[in-house]
């Protein structure tokens, strides 16, 4: 019974931690639904993409490729390149995942997005399937339901509110990052290095956005770790 109570409180914690994501997904998925309609997808196709793929940026890009009449292989390959960054995120999350049956981990892995990863990775405790289920379910429900709303009634939300809500996910990322920035010089160094690299890669247009995020993250993580280990002990903490 005690383990059930623990699982319930972990689920609840995950669910609450995901409310910021749910708010942020609302305008993003609403826009996706609206765009899907204008790209002449059916309601079923629009919802299927959100239900089975659950990856915002990839769905947006797929819409524009579908509208252009791009082939299946190219669309799938683009999606793969864009989403391969989740491999890195899942690898990092796995380091703080509690030992559980493989099927449970494989199940919650479906819910790993940029946003759920960020929330789970910044948690000051280990993660487990109950926490991840709560986190993923609130995010997923918001994504799927808002996609449908966008398709059916996307124009109903006042334009001003829609535009302002574009800040939501970034504000969430900032809310996750800032407490660490205040505490740790190393976190500042990591975030700043990766941000700078990603700006260079993005504006020079030498990499697709998927690769750009992966490479910025990897180079920054490696370089900062090397710098910290080479420096005299205790200099950067």
């Amino acid at each position: 019974m005690e383990t059930t109570a623990v699982a319930q409180s972990e689920f609840k914690d995950g669910f609450t931690s995901g409310i910021g994501i749910a708010i942020g997904y609302f305008p993003a998925a609403l826009t996706y639904g609206l765009l899907a309609k204008s790209a002449e997808l059916t309601f079923l196709e629009t919802m299927s993409l959100s239900i089975f793929v659950f990856a915002g940026a990839a769905q947006y890009i797929a819409l524009s490729l579908i509208a252009l009449g791009t082939g299946i292989f190219e669309i799938v390959l683009t999606t793969f390149i864009l989403n391969i960054r989740h491999f890195l995120m899942s690898t990092a999350l796995n380091e703080k995942a509690e030992e559980e049956e493989i099927w449970k981990k494989a199940a919650y892995a479906f819910g790993v997005t940029d946003e759920t990863f960020s929330v789970a990775a910044m948690r000051n405790r280990t993660i487990n399937s109950s926490f991840m289920a709560g986190l993923a379910i609130v995010s997923y429900l918001s994504w799927v339901i808002s996609s449908g709303l966008g398709y059916l009634a996307g124009n109903a939300l006042p334009q001003i509110v829609q535009e302002s809500m574009g800040i939501a996910l970034y504000a969430m990322f900032i809310g996750l990052l800032v407490p660490s920035l205040k505490k740790s010089e190393k976190a500042v160094l990591l975030a700043a290095t990766a941000a700078l690299l990603n700006c260079v890669f993005t504006f020079s247009e030498i990499l697709s956005s998927g690769w750009s995020i992966i490479l910025s993250t990897l180079i920054a993580s490696l370089a900062v770790e090397a710098a910290v280990q080479l420096k005299p002990k205790g200099k950067i903490e």
Binding site: L190, A191, A195, T217, E225
Partner: peptide, 27 residues
Amino acid sequence: PFWQGILKNVPYATLGALIFPGIFLFH
């Protein structure tokens, strides 16, 4: 340990890359 250290760095670096430059371009 060196690789563990790198993986622990990943979340902070990812957040940096997810925020910039996207936050300047959402509107």
